[in-house]
Amino acid sequence: MRDPILTIDGLDAHYGDFQALYGVSLTVEPGEVVAVIGANGAGKTTLLRSICGLLRNTPSAIRWHDKPIGALRADQIAQHGIALVPEGRLLFPSLSVEENLIIGGQSGRTGPWTLERVYTLFPVLKERRNQASTSLSGGQQQMVAIGRALMSNPDLVLMDEISLGLAPVIIRQIYEALPGIVGEGLTAVIVEQDISKALSVSSRVYCLQEGRVSLQGHSNTVSREDISRAYFGV
């Protein structure tokens, strides 16, 4: 077992008075895809928002290469090489497709991902590079959102519900691109509603239930019964 790049240890997260996460612990090793599953409101998105700095926490609750990052701002976390593909894509409507990609790369981190590489991965975006990002279909917007995150050449990419609201054929297309993305030495944490999809692309899986980790294991060995118990708490 290699040293984890991301270590979350006893993370409590709050929205005002409401506590969304209770003592969540999770590790991510370099080069692996970790899936996080769970019912709506289980705290999956809160977990990703905490990692990427949109929700600030105690410094030592989240460590990146053994450096406490829990209290850093989102832009500082981004400079460390953690990128988020947010739920609902959230492209910048005032920016063209290409500008959305360029702004992802403006942090100045170098690596394999360039505008050209993103266009090779998703050729349709090159044809539409000068269009308003809002004029694209949902699937194409998702490609821009993924490309925007890759443009920062992250060491870890967090993907929140990338299949949400997309046609099955588009979902398949995007997931087929995933091995090519992770093959570049990238590590990923994916949050996914579709459990079989989540298990098939990941090496390890965590299940959240009401803000707590209810199950963790290797994606190819966890049983369906364990998952449904962890998912629904029955």
Binding site: A74, D75, A78, L90, F92, Q106, R148, S152
Partner: peptide
Amino acid sequence: TALGRAFRATSDNQDIAQLMGLNR
């Protein structure tokens, strides 16, 4: 310009602009 892009992006969505490494 990059500055103008940062202005427009921040105007669109401050949180997501922050994720792009832009300090609001």
